[in-house]
Design a protein around this nucleic acid. Structure first.
Lengths: 337, 337
DNA sequence: ATCGAAGTTCGAATCGATTCGACATCCGTC
DNA sequence: GACGGATGTCGAATCGATTCGAACTTCGAT
């Protein structure tokens, strides 16, 4: 069903149908009603491709996700869901591109095929070729996470450095003098993954400020690794009385390990972390943590992107979120042995 | 950069550029190379909208996911990721539509705006208006999960009835006489969610066949609920010696509950379920379970859909997967008290 | 030398929408 | 009753690709 068919049945020209629908020129009430009746009867909707071709915009956002081979984390999933929902609220569709790097075919299609009006990138590295590429290409984009050179781009991110530092201060206030950071995996650190780096930095600085002993130990993003991690910590650094973590996926394993080793939380070991509320509340005892507002972040990313599409030349906006730490049951004063 | 610009720079007509790219007519080697050189230089790619308009196909698949308000399960996420990846392998893009029902605006756009060549539906109910709609609209589609009237449509599904039955038989073989089914939530059962219903059916039948006592208890899809569930089971049905489950999300809570109540697995209670390998192996002790092949299912769905797009009138194909049960450590012979 | 087939290229039509300029109609005003 | 300004409608151009028919070249066979 195309616009010509509607026009024919309503006995008007195609342009009149178009104007009746868009309201960009006045159409008499009688004509408009006749057209609407025909449309309702046969269920017409403008062809998206034709409209995109003429208007030069697709009413579609591109969302670049990590390839499926790397199991998506819970947080990444949250971003996808919230971006899609926020876009739907603005009557925009979302096109997914599972791309690791710059030369992925699907990424290329998205960019050079002009399939999206704007793009949201996830899993940003400190040096990210995709960012460079998009910038050069002149396509509006927003990143969830930010690179080492954040000023020229729009992004939304969690302030891992500040949050980890706050955790350290909180623990130090409770009297802990020797604290470990349960970081994301060593691979992620190696490839320059922002959150892992910034957690490291925030940790190091806070530990220095307070004159504490700080141990940073990376850990792969899964439960089994979390279980090993706590064993190793106990063996190699028995003096540690508190840990801070940004590694959600390791939490179930961490919990199992603690139970198996008979380490009481928070009596023998305090834990303060950064995690989605869902993870923090699922931990036993419930985790004192800064709640990462996953759903809001996706919505913010869409919001910034829409602004950027409307005004591509405007100054880039950033959002660095540092949600407050929710005190739950996993932190307490040091307990002498 | 459009095809006209390429043609101008290469000194040929637009049609020649098109033929050089598609290979649908022969183009002399000299000309082809000249065109290719220009394309490489300025990085041209055909405009997706223009191509879609002319060809009548978008090279895009639509994937309808549950709205973000309902937190997506791990398995659903797996489907999304695998569908996107399988589509990318076939050089197709995926458009996401977060739609609960038939009248969602985003669903409407997908259908009547002709934004996708074919559609994959997730979270199918026994009676699903979206299926009816798509069928009526004549758009190729495949469902992950199937309705109560499965013969006319293409789908991929896990044979929950058979798998739960197998679990029951396995447990019966080990001597268990009183078995509980830890089903998905009561709400899902109420809205006619297929897996929950079919698990129920398979359970009931197997229990009947073996002359066992069977108790079906639904449980919300989260950890906290799993913990409550096992408490209630112990209180109300103390004679149960084995459980079978299809509720992955409740597993962490189930485990905590078992530990807290001091119930030893498999000595006092055997567990056999249906779960992604990732969940089964994350359980302690590792779970005897039929491993749901999430990643393959997405790939199969794309495969069926591509077939359907190529031959819309062909007979609908179905895939009912019943992966073998992996024996791990959570099942054992009944142990007399 | 001529013919036909194969190879190569071009121009024009087409897909389905939006939008501009032009024209027709209607109304109130002087 | 002529004029100007809304108001309503239409035809044609346009977006960027693909594809059909036609024309032109080349070359081997007769």
């Amino acid at each position: 069903m195309n616009i010509g068919e509607i026009a024919r049945r309503a006995g008007v020209s195609r342009s009149t149908v178009s104007y009746a629908l868009s309201g960009r020129r006045s159409v008499s009430t009688a004509t408009r009603q006749r057209i609407q009746a025909v449309i309702d009867e046969i269920g017409y909707r403008p062809n998206a491709a034709a409209r995109a071709l003429k208007e030069g915009r697709t009413r579609t956002l591109g969302l670049v996700i990590p390839p499926a081979s790397l199991r998506l984390t819970d947080m990444q999933l949250g971003f996808v869901a919230s971006v899609v929902e926020a876009a739907a609220r603005a009557d925009l569709d979302v096109l997914l591109s599972p791309s690791g790097g710059d030369h992925d075919r699907s990424f290329e299609r998205l960019i050079s095929g002009r399939r999206a009006d704007g793009i949201i990138l996830m899993e940003i590295r400190l040096e990210d070729e995709r960012v460079t590429r998009l910038r050069h290409e002149g396509i509006p984009f927003v990143t969830i996470g930010h690179t080492a050179h954040p000023h020229g781009t729009c992004w939304v991110d969690v302030d891992y450095a500040a949050l980890v530092a706050r955790c350290v201060h909180h623990l130090a206030d409770l009297g802990h003098r020797s604290i470990a950071l349960l970081n994301r995996s060593a691979e992620l650190v190696a490839v320059g993954y922002g959150p892992a780096h910034r957690a490291q930095a925030g940790f190091a600085e806070a530990v220095l400020q307070r004159g504490l002993t700080g141990i940073e130990l990376p850990c792969p993003d899964d439960a089994a690794a979390g279980e090993e991690w706590i064993e190793q910590l106990r063996d190699r650094h028995p003096g540690v009385t508190a840990i801070t973590t940004i590694n959600e996926a390791s939490l179930p394993g961490l919990q199992r390990g603690l139970e198996r080793l008979g380490i009481a939380v928070p009596r023998e070991l305090s834990i303060a972390g950064v995690a989605a509320r869902h993870w923090a509340e699922g931990f036993r005892p419930q985790l004192t943590a800064a709640d990462v507002p996953t759903l809001e972040m996706g919505a913010h990313a869409v919001e910034l992107l829409l602004e950027r599409i409307a005004a591509p030349a405007g100054p880039p906006r950033h959002l660095l979120l540092a949600p407050p730490i929710s005190l739950r049951d996993s932190t307490g004063p040091v307990h002498p042995h």
